[in-house]
Design a protein around this nucleic acid. Structure first.
Lengths: 216, 216
DNA sequence: AGTATTTCTGACTTTGTAATCAGAAACTAA
DNA sequence: TTAGTTTCTGATTACAAAGTCAGAAATACT
């Protein structure tokens, strides 16, 4: 008995899809596509699992909807960069690198997802390249090339700077568990953020040695 | 009919466990713990899935057995470093960093696994720290601290150098799919290896600018 | 009011994967 | 040869996770 009784009711408001997207971004960025499961996302959003499939056809489409929320972040970065468009390339490059690092800190989800999917390859990476990170990567490489051509930087393959920057930005966030385990140090807080930014910018653009001539 | 007929026979030789370990390392490093599945590993090793469970109790223990194969790599690194034990700390540090990068290139599995598990945290990371990477990380940090104390390096949090080095080493291997997608460049080959090693060492220890005073 | 539409859900199906197990084949020792 | 041990396997179980669906509840429309 009491079988067909209380079918649970509905209408969580028009915010439902938004809450789902936000919960999805949170979990996808923290756990990655496969480890984040629909049940968790549904619970986090406060809806049933079936509701996820009502608003989004399948897991991949939900993932894309979640990722699209990051477009504003990239857009903001782009806008700030345009302000420096008339500076010499090495100044623009430095600014672009600083922005890259700052945004990685402010929105750890972006760096985590790029690292996660960038390692795996596949259709999600291709989507990210087309809709999120491709233009930014290529703009950075162009800046590096221009700075090299102008003689401000030593010649080196420009893509290597991207990969180093991306690795550094993502690594400091993503490898926080390793640093905690190996050193019992929490590198995810503000002081570490400042130290890391300075290290990367100083190192990649200034040199770490107090006397660069001392060691070839 | 033909039901209890040909039960398939056995004896693949004493190499079986070794082949399984090797196949497991290959797949765990390429795909990570969860995406690599027992069926694939069994197929790669040329045995049935049940044989995996005969030699190794469960997936986690197989993973640990696979990881132990990397101990020789770390051991070799350690031995090479001891040869330079009497040099000044910044020379030792430079050598340690170069070894770190070279070994990451020669054994991509190590860097991939550290990146994969270092992002996720959990019991596998703790095992890695205890049995594989912890001592190396701490030795590097000590070297950096010594070099800073001797005045050869600008002061900075030594752990940040580890995370940057680890990120760079792992990143250039792991983010190869992203570089391929964004730039259609293959960074997993020897020429890229050399360029990257030089960039990291030059940058982190020498400075990238031709004129360091030009840009504060 | 009644009817249609939208939003949501519990229950179900399907699929992929780790783990178990009884027993076959090969090897060893008597 | 025969009895016992080791190595290996197909078949099965157990379980987790994505995706489907009929229908309930709220809202909108007439």
């Amino acid at each position: 008995m009491a079988k067909v009784l209380a079918q649970a009711p509905a209408r969580k408001g028009p915010q439902t899809a938004i809450r789902i997207r936000e919960a999805a971004l949170e979990l996808f960025s923290r756990l990655g596509f496969e480890r984040a499961n629909m049940a968790q996302i549904a619970a986090e959003a406060g809806v049933s699992q079936a509701t996820l499939h009502y608003h989004f056809e399948d897991k991949f489409q939900l993932w894309r909807a979640a990722m699209l929320q990051l477009r504003a972040v990239i857009g903001e970065e782009e806008r700030l960069l345009e302000a420096a468009m008339d500076s010499p390339p090495e100044v623009q490059l430095r600014m672009a690198m600083r922005l890259f690092l700052q945004i990685s800190w402010r929105h750890p989800a972006l760096g985590r997802i790029v690292a996660l999917e960038g390692m795996a390859g596949g259709e999600r990476l291709e989507w990210l390249d087309a809709h999120l990170i491709g233009p930014r990567n290529r703009r950075l490489a162009e800046l590096a090339k221009a700075a090299i051509d102008s003689g401000a930087l030593k010649p080196f393959p420009a893509e290597m700077l991207i990969i180093t920057l991306q690795s550094a930005a993502a690594g400091v966030i993503n490898l926080a568990p390793m640093m905690k385990t190996s050193f019992d140090v929490d590198v995810s807080q503000a002081p570490a953020r400042a130290a890391h930014e300075q290290l990367i910018l100083d190192a990649l653009l200034g040199g770490l040695l107090t006397d660069p001539s001392a060691m070839t």
